[in-house]
Design a protein around this nucleic acid. Structure first.
Lengths: 329, 329
DNA sequence: TTGTAGGCGTTATCAT
DNA sequence: ATGATAACGCCTACAA
């Protein structure tokens, strides 16, 4: 393996000089820069990121914490895009990434988790799909031991940013569109995890809408479960004009139930997953660009690692209907 | 951060002694082992794997190479299970993992790829879902610069193992079952990527079956594309008794086409993905335990890193029908 | 502006 | 059986 030492020798300068050039320090003459860069080229030198990570605590090792729910593989799509977007952006930014799953820490303490991350020389973490029930992770962010970016939540402090779409507005938008299109009055709203961060925001959006349009609304907690949403719909569906769901999976459960009941009610979902195209009936939904969100999260983490303060970053969304013909290829 | 040095001091021994205890070297007295382990406990010491990786080339850093096809997110399920199974097993075995995607190396040379992996101190790699067209990866395995495990292929050499189910038998089994159940004679077989490793094996299984049962068979290349399978079925479906597909996605495409054509033909798939439950019509398919396969792959890589020779590892499979009711939760 | 040298936390090779 | 000590490859004061 060709090391910085070889480059230094080849270029006729000191090791530290090479390091400075590589890390774009000021106070290096154009001339030596060129010498060094040529040596790098000629030797095909690629810096060893492991050594870099060991040497400086600043080095960008990043952990992805993914909330992988084994039971609903249908939404692996979302996590996969999260992972993909993050890793690709990380490569661009020259950050090293390790991927971890919530389940790995289910019965570990906060301290253990922190020690594990430290043993991996992790400087920053991104948490995907955290809910209120994942209290270790909430505490992890609040401990501020690491730079931290969270999607779909709203913890913000000096070392923590949140990235994601405006759930309140998005939920409002998609529900309004569906309701107006179908001229509905009585809304059955199947919400997500109780006490989830985004669940609260979405509910807020619904309440605004209800007030504004003078609707009536029944709220049931579907726990992000397709089955629960199905059962709720079987029980209450016929008494309402529209079923608004805070996730596509629940929307699918609701729609399948309605089809079985042989009654028509418009249903709208939330997320924009491909699976929506396989259900037969089209529904309005909110398309989030998950890969984009996680790329933005990585970018934001990069900023935090560079010393910037935590903040809230809003990402764009759009309203769509997903058709089978559009998604197959 | 508490380091090996602290442990040494706390236990009243030398650093190297601690290291020996931690890595289960022989020639350490019971007494000192106990002393050291107590110190480890008391200080909550967790070894820094980055430093270990830097110090010893043996250290187990592993790269996952995943073939992520952005266009067919429906099968992210498979890759997600691969990733999950591998990472969980790696944690068990104390191996560090980084995840990479084929797309990152699309227009890079083999040498660049090797250098990149070396710069990450990677000792072993697992390649998921490689096809013949990914020639860089084939060369990567053949270069033997790293210990290597491959799923769904069959490169085996001193430093390379292959892990996966017996595609020839599995394809034979699922097709036979479907054909016998429906008493078919004329088979339309939609195969996968031309020249893919597993595609060849599956075709072999079909040819055996055709000969054995005295069937006639037309083989069309569906390129693992739902759309292509759909079009093939639209064109040829009616002239055959059964449509055998070498992937679930293609089976779904075929089934949807048949439903549109309003004719019934049994269809069978391959992989056992959840999406099969959303199509409405049940089909026979081969269920592979992808997480199990990748766990086995990681285990095998661990063996290779420990000095064992490459080999072929067969994993189990089963024939199933996936029903909507079974998969929702 | 450039170079020297110490350190990051381990592992591994020697002596002892 | 145990302990110094030199790597591993890089970063970064600090000195020149």
């Amino acid at each position: 393996m060709v090391s910085i030492k070889d480059v230094a020798r080849h270029a006729g300068v000191a090791i530290s000089t090479v390091s400075k050039v590589l890390n774009r320090y000021p106070n290096v003459s154009e001339e030596t820069k060129i010498k060094v860069n040529r040596a790098v080229e000629e030797l095909n030198f690629v810096p060893n990121s492991v050594a870099a990570a060991l040497s400086s605590k600043q080095a960008g090792r990043v952990a992805l914490l993914v909330n992988l729910n084994i039971k609903t593989q249908a939404i692996d799509e979302i996590n996969m895009q999260y992972i993909q977007g993050a890793i690709n952006k990380a490569m661009e930014l020259n950050l090293d990434v390790i991927t971890l799953f919530f389940s790995m820490f289910k019965d570990r303490s906060l301290e253990e988790l922190i020690r594990y991350l430290q043993s991996q020389s992790i400087a920053g973490i991104i948490i995907f799909g955290m809910g209120r029930e994942d209290d270790i992770l909430v505490k992890l962010a609040e401990s501020q031991k690491f730079k931290c970016v969270i999607t779909d939540a709203s913890i913000v402090n000096e070392n923590t940013s949140s990235v994601g779409i405006d759930h309140c507005r998005a939920q409002y938008d998609v529900a309004r569109k569906t309701i107006v299109e179908n001229n509905c009055k009585r809304v059955l709203y199947i919400s997500g995890q109780k006490d989830g961060y985004s669940a609260r925001e979405k509910l807020l959006g619904m309440e605004q809408l209800v007030e504004e349009m003078k609707l009536t609304m029944k709220v049931k907690n579907g726990g992000l479960s397709e089955l629960l949403a199905r059962n709720i719909t079987l029980e209450y569906g016929e008494y309402y004009d529209v079923v608004v769901c805070s996730s596509d999976l629940m929307a699918i459960g609701a729609m399948k139930a309605l089809i079985e009941m042989d009654i028509f009610r418009p249903v709208c979902g939330y997320d924009g997953i491909i699976l929506m195209g396989y259900v037969g009936k089209q529904m309005n939904t909110v398309r989030q660009d998950f890969a984009g969100i996680s790329a933005a999260a990585m970018e934001e983490l990069h900023q935090l690692l560079g010393g910037k303060e935590g903040r809230r970053v809003k990402t764009p969304y759009s309203l769509v209907r997903i058709k089978y013909k559009d998604i197959i290829c």
